[in-house]
């Protein structure tokens, strides 16, 4: 109950704080929010677009949340997502496999690619003590330039007909559309499945418990015989694998081919998603729905209220700022709770 309250307070706080910034950028905040709401929930198409945007946000949010629960801050989700999308696009277009198997292989390949992309920061963190925030960000830029190169003119994966993209993914590797005539695809089901799996893994398995223990207190974990370095490496790779899946879902479900810069920054928004969702898979799902609304509504926001789409990133940033500042509120609540306990004990 308290958590739901904090979630709502954070969202409202960020939206209120964004209002003067929207005004500075030259628009009316109220009509901006009306356009956001109308664009995201006001029609069948809007609702579908909200779910479509929430799908990668949920998957990437899980990637960030898993890393955070293990005491790591994976800011490289955007790069891992791009690598995942690229691999899924390549497997989908270049490999021939029976329907059903093809799509699974493409997603698994993407997950593997994301995990390998996260392996370098994981090893540097575990064995060199280099902060993963720096290394994952460096690898983001490497991922951007490698992926741009591969589909640049004359690049090894570029399509013959479409610049800055791979060939179309074969029908056997498609994630089917599930709500005609909208673009909603099976990816949303995959994302919800991953969400449930993450919840089960974190709270109902020994490995998940170990992961959270390392995140909460690595020294204590070490003294309890947990191989902290091993957990660090596995956590980071799991996080990268989830991000890779998100890329695959976008490519196989929505775009049908890998496009250069297909992600409008889902990997970065997902940091806000995970923080707002308090690193719990269920919270992350709720937060992904909220940010999905923002993304879906941003189209109408730009068209109708003349507010730049970039303001959505500002709102993400404000959510993160409120999460950061929320510790004060949490501290107050904690201290008042402990005061009450003491009074009860004494009285």
């Amino acid at each position: 109950m308290l958590r739901i309250g904090l979630f709502v307070v954070t969202v409202i706080g960020a939206l209120v704080a964004a209002a003067p910034l929207i005004a500075i950028a030259g628009s009316n905040p109220l009509s901006a929010y009306r356009a956001l709401l109308q664009g995201s929930l006001g029609s069948r198409r809007g609702l579908a677009e909200t779910l479509i945007a929430a799908t990668p946000l949920l998957t990437c949010g899980l990637a960030v949340a898993v890393s955070f629960q293990g005491g790591l801050f994976n800011i490289g989700v955007e790069g891992q997502l791009v690598i995942g999308g690229l691999i899924a696009g390549a497997i989908g277009a270049e490999v021939s496999l029976p329907a059903g198997i093809h799509v699974v292989v493409a997603i698994l390949g993407a997950a593997l690619g994301g995990a390998l992309w996260a392996l370098v920061p994981a090893l540097l963190k575990a064995f060199r003590g280099v902060h993963e925030v720096i290394t994952t960000i460096m690898l983001n830029y490497v991922a951007f330039s490698v992926s741009t190169y591969l589909v640049s003119p004359g690049g090894p994966l570029v399509s013959k007909t479409q610049p800055s993209a791979t060939e179309k993914v074969k029908a056997t590797a498609h994630l089917a559309r599930i709500w005609q005539p909208t673009r909603l695809h099976l990816g949303v089901v995959v994302a919800i499945g991953l969400c449930a799996a993450c919840w089960f893994f974190l709270y109902r398995t020994t490995a998940g418990y170990r992961l959270r223990m390392v995140g909460a207190n690595p020294t204590a974990a070490q003294f309890n015989g947990i191989n902290v370095r091993g957990v660090v490496v596995r956590t980071m790779c799991l996080s990268g694998a989830l991000a890779g899946c998100a890329g695959a879902i976008e490519v196989l479900g929505l775009h049908g081919r890998y496009f250069d810069s297909f992600s409008p920054g889902y990997g970065f928004d997902s940091i806000a998603v995970a923080l707002l969702g308090m690193m719990n898979p269920l919270g992350v799902a709720a937060a992904a729905a909220f940010f999905g609304m923002l993304r879906a509504g941003s189209v109408l926001l730009q068209a109708k209220a003349k507010v730049s789409k970039d303001m959505v990133t500002v709102i993400s940033g404000l959510v993160v700022a409120f999460v950061a500042a929320r510790v004060v509120l949490e501290r107050r609540l904690e201290s008042s709770a402990s005061r009450r306990d003491r009074r009860r004990r004494d009285g």
């Binding site: 910034l21 950028a25 800011i75 970065f268 940091i271 806000a272 970039d310 303001m311 959505v312 990133t313 500002v314 709102i315 993400s316 940033g317 404000l318 993160v320 700022a321 999460v323 950061a324």
Partner: peptide, 11 residues
């Protein structure tokens, strides 16, 4: 810091 970076990039 992540909050500041996100806000800077968008704003």
């Amino acid at each position: 810091a992540t909050a500041i970076n996100l806000i800077a990039s968008g704003l």
